[in-house]
Design a protein around this nucleic acid. Sequence first.
DNA 1: ACGGCTGCTATACGCCTGTATAGTTTGCTA
DNA 2: TAGCAAACTATACAGGCGTATAGCAGCCGT
Lengths: 191, 191
Amino acid sequence: MREISARAGVSPGLIRHHFGTKDALRAECDAEVLRRYRDLKVEGIRMSPTETMAMLAELDDFAPMFVYILRSVRDGGEAGREFVEGMIAEAIDFSEDAVREGVIKPSRDPAARARYLVTSALGGLLVQLTLMPDLDLSDMPQAIHRLTESIMLPTLELFTEGVLVDRSVLDEYLASSLGPPGAPDEERADT
Amino acid sequence: MREISARAGVSPGLIRHHFGTKDALRAECDAEVLRRYRDLKVEGIRMSPTETMAMLAELDDFAPMFVYILRSVRDGGEAGREFVEGMIAEAIDFSEDAVREGVIKPSRDPAARARYLVTSALGGLLVQLTLMPDLDLSDMPQAIHRLTESIMLPTLELFTEGVLVDRSVLDEYLASSLGPPGAPDEERADT
DNA sequence: ACGGCTGCTATACGCCTGTATAGTTTGCTA
DNA sequence: TAGCAAACTATACAGGCGTATAGCAGCCGT
């Protein structure tokens, strides 16, 4: 609180006068960031979550917002969850279109794949950022830029070629979990 | 400190008496966990990082250690970094062998791929765990079990089939970043 | 039996944090 | 210009934290 007020150039009491409690301030900030993110998504052209993230990170204007979101995710608050679930929902929609357009392959469980891809991308970024020894908020955009670059090649390799040489592991899994082999691409109902 | 001592059933003063400062205690705990992890890796059969993580999470004996590690990674301390870098190093070795044995495909940048795969897997797990609304340490093993299960299918799909339908994106990237097409900067084993 | 060392507790100090309250300045309007 | 509400400050209070100090019980070699 005191640090926030100091950075704002006001006394600590004032921010309490305006926002009430600390949690209330946090809630308002969360709502504001969520709102801006949604606006961004609406006004922009249809982008994959990965593209959106890259854009958020590159543009200096959005960088603070981006680190705010990453922090929210890391800290596990309600805002973080909302953001991630939002991205997953977007990813599901986006994949559906992309599959229809013949850009990406269909999945046996599109929702699970979207969740997996979003959390992996977000989490991977988060881990690599938190493990950077000295990370100043000022060179955040640059750091993320370098990161996305170093991730580009492995991602594209994995996304177009996979890693495994043959299908045996996948087929074994499908056989053991879906019953008879050759079963249709149907997600199994969890008990 | 007080909570730790309470759980240990001793007075707060005692733990300070034995360990000195709080950071010293933390350092000893970090070292101990790192040591146990290394022992585990040495005594065990050669496992991929993913297998190791799954095992860590499933066995109730190792679950506390596993959440300790995850927390360290999330909090970005030295221990977390050491752990992640260790896993990456292991993954590099492991992939080398697996490539040699014809199990996984070679990469244009094996180190980058290993880093990408480890941080994604770890980060994805971390994000999904963090975003679980009510997470008790007692049902941690179960939570991780469910998580690994929900991740299994997308992972296998992605690892054996990829997501992209054609190679155009990858090829464009390779062309633009490596100069003239067909000029590999590292060993290149095309399919 | 006796110092002395070790394991251990009780209590308090100083610091930081979020919060509350009283008082002061500023700006708008009657 | 007077008055009043809103913006803003100064200061204090309570709680939690890591830490420091003083004291007590039990074990040990001599």
